[in-house]
Structure formats: structure tokens, C-alpha cells
Amino acid sequence: HNLTITQGKLFFHYNPKLCLSEIHKMEEVSGTKGRQERNDIALKTNGDQASCENELLKFSYIRTSFDKILLRWEPYWPPDFRDLLGFMLFYKEAPYQNVTEFDGQDACGSNSWTVVDIDPPLRSNDPKSQNHPGWLMRGLKPWTQYAIFVKTLVTFSDERRTYGAKSDIIYVQTDATNPSVPLDPISVSNSSSQIILKWKPPSDPNGNITHYLVFWERQAEDSELFELDYCLKGLKLPSRTWSPPFESEDSQKHNQSEYEDSAGECCSCPKTDSQILKELEESSFRKTFEDYLHNVVFVPRKTSSGTGAEDPRPSRKRRSLGDVGNVTVAVPTVAAFPNTSSTSVPTSPEEHRPFEKVVNKESLVISGLRHFTGYRIELQACNQDTPEERCSVAAYVSARTMPEAKADDIVGPVTHEIFENNVVHLMWQEPKEPNGLIVLYEVSYRRYGDEELHLCVSRKHFALERGCRLRGLSPGNYSVRIRATSLAGNGSWTEPTYFYVTDYLDVPSNIA
């Protein structure tokens, strides 16, 4: 807008934040220059609390790290170098490059900038070799853009010569660093050979998330399962459950009422301010606690030095998902009996873990797994792929695949051998790939016309006998059925096997 004052003059007093240069501009645009008398524009009460600059400061050096910015700028000295009290560095987070010096300023003089007072450097006698002032900004957020400017702080001049310097606002972004852990990993099994893994992005990506790394490792069953005799009275049979499938998407929606109208769909109840505040506090606490764990609990591995020492970490090797089922080394339970199943799973520490690289999504279907087997899954978020990966501390989750139908069934015939004193040795093959492992066998036998009897055969007993022995049988026709019990439950009964026990007292003698 054009402003013209045809008559009258300007009068400025007691404006401590208004620089004289701005008042002189007002004289020019209003056409009143030359009308004012000496005392109409006070030299001592206008701009006496402001830094009124008329020179431009330029930054000469900028260096960044993930949490620091090192700045240096060209030296500046007023005509009387004693008038320079120091520099004021202003900075704040700036997602967009549209910041002005006066953003967030209120009537009390406060604003949204963080201000650092910096002492002037030592003055050199040689004007050509003056030290460049600077400042190291610490405690910054990774991968965050900051708006920065600097200006001088000078003393009051009796001659009211307006001098000083100020830089333009520059924008500097800190470097990326390792992201925080992925949030809320959930693993479920939808079949006997697959596990579905879902997660949420890290709360602090500290860069642009480029991919996720998912490692999985087959877990050995508890050692007590191999040692305890679950045929003993009072000892509860062990059981394991597989990871249940995901709930429906509708039930997972946030901010939804727990109660549904019987007449149909209901609208979600909005969260109160107290609920939102509580969630923010919980989120802040979780982030602080995660940072504490990362800094205190997890110790970084030592990389190899120039002395030739090897990095103890196993090298990563990509495998196809079809090879995942046989990740671990199978060892027989008892070496003397080769027909026992290889369900003991000690994992070799030198073995390469299978892994998958996930790009542009937060889910993965891990296939080719062994049925009813526990897996430990390790999830890392990465925001750099080359020249070397920059990934987060791992988040861990466990899951067990679903049982395989008929995996616990005894394959092959049940054979028998009759000894003296009416002892019958029953023999059968253990299931080759049971659900988890076989903890015991149930032997059901009966003599024709009598009630059915049951015998429990422990895992250890089966390994020693290759089956079991029935003792003290009365003469007669017998039928026997056997079924295995694994961590997933009972298998199917075998087809009945028949044998006849004679009275050993009636056996004919070869003595003449």
C-alpha cells in the first residue's frame, strides 16, 4: 500500500525493539523526510534493546553428524571492536523451508527459537588472519532439518551509529543413524509349514526405512522333555500350542467401542483428552525405555581390526524358502538304536541362519518350516543398504507352526516275539517326523474274553527296548493296539495285532 503524509511529521519514542533503520525507511515511504526535528525521533529510546544489523554474515563451514552440527561463519568486528559482546545463534526444527525470524513471537518477546549466546573469538592483530567464530550444536535429532541463523550482539553506541551483522536463515539436516526397533511384532501360524509375521514401523526411523531383515531359527525343545518319565503317576503330560491366527481386521481397528449394538453396526467412541494424553505418555515412556535398553543392555560386537582377528559373527547367506525346513542338525536320541526319531534339535552355532529381506511392506510369510516346531524370529529395521547396512537392534518374537495331521501315527506293522515265561516283546517304529517329539506310547492289549488293559511306555523305555515287553501273560489269544502321544496330543491307534500265548508248562520236552 502507498502511504503519503502531505502535512505533519513523524514522532517515535520509547520503541526499544524498533531499529532506527526501520524508522528511516518509514520517513522515505511516507514522504516526511526532512520535516522531523532532532528530538522527534529519539536516538536513545528507539532500538536500544534490539540488534540492528546492516551487514550480512556468511557461514564459512558446515559439518553434520547424526546428532551434531558444527558451524563456522566469517569474522565480524565493528569499528570499535570492544562493542562486540558476542553472537546469538538461533535454531529450531523446520520440516519445511518457510521459516521466518519472527515465527511464534508474542507480545512478551518470546519466540519459538532456541538461542545460544556465543563469546567472540580472540581478536588477531592481523586483519587478514582473524579467527572464524563458530559453535557445535549438540543433542539434535537424527535425520531432522533445522533452520539456523546467527547475528551479532553489540553494545549501545553513544554516537548512535547503527552497526551489526546478521546471516540469512539456512537449512541444515542432520545425518541418518540406526533406527529404533520395529514396533509390535506379531507372529502367527496359518499352516503346519508357515508363519505369518506382521509389525509396525519404528517410532524413530532416523532416516528413510529402506528394508527390513527377518531372521528365523528353529528352537530346540526343553531338555526336561527328553529326561522326564511322563508315565509316572502324578506327572502331567506336557503340551505345546501353536500360535493362533490373526483376529479379523475389524476387531483390530483402534479407537473402536468394545460393545456392539445388537441391531447392527455401531460407531466408534472418540477417545477423551485424558485417554489420548495417557497414550502419549505411555508411548514416550516406551521410547525412553527402549533407548535405555539399547544403550545399557546391548553391547556392540567388536569388529575385526587390522591384526587379522576374525569377526566372530557368522556370515549372512541367503537361502531359498524351500530350504528352511531342514535348518537344524538332527541327532538321534540314543545312538545305539537307529530307529528312534531325530527330534532332539541342538543347533550348531556355526550354522548360517536363513533370512529374508523385506522391502516396502511390514509383513512376511515364512514358508518351508517344520510342522509343530518353535521358531525364534528376529526382526531388524534398516535405513541404508549400501555401502553397508545400517540397521536397528533386533526385536524378537516366537511362534510355533501348526501340527501336521497323521504325523504322530505309527507307520509300519507292530511285530512281536514270544519268549519263555510268557513274555512277549512288542516292537514298532517311532514316527519319523512327529509333531514336536514323542513323549510316550500307549499300549492297549486284551486277552479274548477279558477286559482291555493299558500300559504306558516312556520315551526312554522305548529307546532301550525298541518297544516294550509284556510279562506274566496268561495263555490265550491276544490283540494289541499302540498309539503315540506327542507334544500336540495323541496320534491314531494302530491296526490290531494278534498273537497267541501258550502255557509254557505244557511245552513238550526233548528229553527222552
Rank of each mutant, 00 (worst) to 15 (best):
N208W: 15
I209S: 04
H211L: 10
V214D: 00
V214P: 00
F215R: 07
R218L: 14
Q219H: 11
A220Q: 13
A220N: 08
S223Q: 07
S223I: 09
L225P: 07
F226T: 13
D229K: 09
C231S: 01
C231K: 02
G234Q: 06
L235N: 08
K236M: 06
K236F: 04
L237A: 12
P238R: 08
P238N: 11
S239I: 08
S243E: 04
S243L: 07
S243K: 04
P244V: 10
P244W: 10
P244T: 08
E247C: 06
E247T: 05
S248V: 07
E249V: 14
D250E: 12
D250H: 12
S251G: 02
Q252D: 09
N255K: 12
S257T: 08
E258R: 11
E258M: 03
E258A: 13
Y259P: 14
E260Y: 15
D261K: 11
D261A: 12
D261V: 14
S262R: 09
S262G: 10
A263I: 10
G264W: 13
E265F: 11
E265I: 03
C266G: 15
C267P: 09
P270W: 07
P270M: 14
D273L: 05
D273Q: 13
D273K: 14
S274C: 15
I276S: 10
L277P: 03
K278F: 10
E279T: 10
S283Q: 06
S284W: 15
F285G: 02
K287M: 10
K287W: 15
T288I: 15
E290M: 08
E290P: 03
D291N: 12
H294E: 04
H294R: 09
V296A: 13
V296K: 14
V297P: 06
F298D: 15
F298N: 02
P300Q: 05
R301A: 04
T303P: 11
S304Q: 14
S304I: 03
S305D: 15
G306W: 13
T307R: 14
G308E: 14
A309I: 14
A309S: 14
A309T: 05
E310L: 12
E310G: 10
D311N: 14
P312K: 06
R313F: 14
S315Q: 08
R319H: 14
R319N: 07
S320H: 06
S320M: 05
L321C: 08
L321G: 10
L321E: 12
G322E: 06
D323P: 04
D323G: 11
V324M: 14
N326S: 10
N326H: 04
V327P: 10
V327I: 06
V329T: 09
A330K: 05
A330S: 14
V331R: 07
V331S: 05
T333S: 13
T333L: 09
A336L: 09
F337L: 12
P338S: 09
P338H: 12
P338G: 09
N339K: 12
S341Q: 08
S342I: 02
S342K: 03
T343D: 03
S344F: 07
S344P: 10
V345C: 12
P346V: 11
T347I: 09
T347Q: 11
P349C: 02
E351Y: 02
R353Y: 05
P354Y: 08
P354A: 03
P354D: 12
E356L: 06
K357F: 13
K357A: 14
K357R: 09
K357E: 13
K357T: 12
V358F: 15
N360P: 07
N360W: 14
N360G: 04
N360I: 05
K361T: 07
E362V: 09
L364V: 08
L364P: 00
V365P: 14
V365R: 09
V365W: 06
V365S: 08
S367E: 14
S367Q: 10
L369F: 02
L369S: 01
L369A: 04
H371S: 09
F372H: 06
T373A: 04
G374F: 08
I377H: 06
I377M: 09
L379N: 01
N383L: 12
N383W: 05
Q384P: 02
D385K: 10
D385N: 03
D385S: 01
P387S: 09
E388S: 04
E389G: 13
E389Q: 13
R390M: 05
S392E: 02
A394S: 06
A394N: 04
A395Q: 04
A395D: 13
Y396D: 01
V397P: 14
S398K: 14
S398C: 12
A399I: 11
R400I: 09
R400T: 09
M402V: 10
M402F: 05
E404S: 02
E404P: 03
K406W: 11
A407K: 07
A407R: 11
A407S: 05
D408W: 00
D409K: 09
I410A: 13
I410G: 04
T415L: 12
H416V: 09
E417A: 15
E417T: 14
I418Q: 10
F419S: 09
N421I: 15
N422P: 02
V423R: 15
V424A: 11
M427L: 09
W428G: 00
P431F: 01
K432C: 11
E433Y: 04
E433V: 11
P434V: 07
N435K: 00
N435I: 00
G436N: 02
L437A: 11
I438K: 01
I438D: 03
I438W: 05
V439N: 03
V439G: 05
L440F: 03
L440N: 05
E442A: 02
V443P: 01
R447L: 10
Y448P: 12
G449H: 01
G449L: 15
D450T: 09
D450W: 09
D450Q: 11
D450P: 03
L455T: 12
R459H: 10
R459G: 05
K460A: 08
H461S: 10
F462I: 04
L464S: 14
E465Y: 12
G472C: 04
S474W: 12
S474D: 08
P475Y: 07
P475L: 06
P475G: 06
N477Q: 08
Y478G: 00
S479E: 12
S479F: 09
R481S: 04
R483Y: 01
L487T: 08
G491F: 02
S492K: 00
W493C: 01
W493T: 03
T494A: 06
P496A: 02
Y498M: 11
Y498T: 02
T502K: 09
T502C: 11
T502W: 13
D503E: 10
L505W: 04
L505P: 13
D506A: 12
S509M: 10
